[in-house]
């Protein structure tokens, strides 16, 4: 899933400074699962913004609504009735796709992101997420024991480990495990080191971000 993190409250407050009526829109997709922008987080942020306004003696209305997803036009359409009421700002609590879809659908509205989109990852434990994918567009994890050197190696090297690997930890931080250590250990434990030993060829990066924004069209699905 896409892992996001809420922006600091001061930054969000700066977006809505001087505004009186704000719509806070959550998303039931990835950001609900990573506890950043679901119904509950919308409720919490709305309460904090209202309390802050109350403290400052400012008149502020914060309405709350959570969409099934903010990255699909049919769900974004559901906001039309609410948006007609007229808001001074819409705060999106989705990954950055959400506010972009909202501002595209409602061009006259000021739309602000309330979350920082961090990475594609998974939950190692409840409340702990790590990066596992960089959307390079050409998955090669089967060559590496089911682990991704693109996203999980600090240098994204295809033939490792490098000299910065020490006791299974990357030189950049003791909190970052060396994925190359994990890959090599896995093959060694399974007695398959020979399969792993060949030098991997240069990766085909043509499907990655280097070619500009990417697009997928599935003709059989397009109306």
């Amino acid at each position: 899933m896409i892992i996001c993190e809420r922006k600091p409250i001061d930054e969000i407050k700066s977006f809505i400074a001087g505004k009186k009526k704000v719509l806070l829109v959550g998303c039931r997709g990835c950001v609900t699962v990573c506890n950043a922008g679901g119904t509950k987080e919308v409720e919490i942020l709305a309460a904090l913004l209202r309390l802050d306004a109350q403290k400052e003696g400012i008149e502020l209305t914060v309405d709350e609504f959570t969409l099934e997803r903010q990255c699909d036009p049919e769900y974004v359409d559901e906001l039309a009735g609410l948006v007609e009421k007229g808001y001074d700002a819409i705060l999106s609590m989705a990954c950055s796709v959400g506010p972009q879809f909202l501002s595209r659908r409602y061009p006259k509205q000021d739309v602000y992101p309330s979350l920082n989109t961090c990475f594609i990852g998974g939950a190692l434990a409840h409340g702990v997420w790590t990066e596992h994918c960089q959307a390079c567009g050409n998955c090669i994890i089967h060559h590496y024991g089911g682990m991704c050197p693109v996203s999980r190696c600090s240098k994204s090297i295809m033939n490792g480990p490098c000299g910065g690997s020490s006791n299974g930890v990357c030189e950049i931080s003791k909190d970052v495990e060396c994925v190359w250590h994990l890959i090599a250990s896995k093959y060694m434990d399974e007695g398959r080191l020979a399969e792993f030993a060949p030098i991997q060829p240069i990766k085909d990066w043509s499907k990655s971000r280097d070619g500009g924004p990417r697009k997928i069209v599935r003709e059989e699905l397009v109306k």
Partner: peptide, 8 residues
């Protein structure tokens, strides 16, 4: 509580 401040 400062949250009780009357609205301006």
């Amino acid at each position: 509580s400062p949250f009780k401040k009357k609205l301006a």
